[in-house]
Amino acid sequence: MRVEALVKKRKYNVIFFAVLLILTLTSIVLTEFDAAKGITSIPRAIRWATSNFYPDIKSLEKIPRIWIKLRETIFLSIAATTMAAICAAFLALLGSKTTRVNRLLGAASRGISSIFRNIPLTAWALILLLSFGQSSLTGFFALFFFNFGFLARAFVDTIDEVSSDGVEALQAAGATYFQIIFQAVIPTCLPQMISWILFMIETNIRSATLIGILTGTGIGFIFELYYKSFQYHVASLVVIFIIISVLVIEFISNYVRRVIL
């Protein structure tokens, strides 16, 4: 029986890769993407990057300006995620099967989080540009709305996965709704929720660069500024700063995760 299962699995794998190959070929044909030209231009791109896109001594003078903008972006990401997490936690309590008040509110809550999550971040930024213009508020709300939807979903899954057993026991003992939330749901879910929040902050700093280009704020703005004025050395320095900050945040969040989980 196990052999049969194995053969079956192999068959599915073959089918999966065949479908993937067909899809890839079709997309290349449909988009008129010239694969050969694409590949041959890679060396040229590398040559350009190595001769222009590296920080030189003079660009180092710009470090203080870059740092200010980077800080702005990091704080914006953290603020947006934290606020979104608080709102998402309430939405998730209504949406989770374990803690929902009733079916209708549960479905509504999951619907809301799905809408917010499925509008791409850049689309949020473009929509919000109309109301807030090019300001850091646009970036903040774009990140906030997207994180809100994403975290609400992640929290619902967390609550359903890890806390339903304890919740059932406290319900059977006659505990009230809020006693159950504080004595069973929060203690079991908090570490995993914090882990999600940290993950979101990391992601945000990456996306904040793109958002910054659109909204003219933060590290994205300063990158675009130098890039458009042909100061590639400084622009490359900005990229290095972004990479370093993402790595540092990743390091910190991994550390925190190890401690709390």
Binding site: L170, A173, F178, A184, P187
Partner: peptide
């Protein structure tokens, strides 16, 4: 068992008293 596994034994045992307490005292 349905315990709140991240809490201690005594905390879990005392959960059996929640039904006798006000919401706030329980929280």
């Amino acid at each position: 068992y349905n315990l709140v596994s991240r809490l201690t034994v005594i905390e879990n045992v005392l959960h059996g008293r929640l039904g006798y307490k006000s919401t706030f005292a329980g929280i």
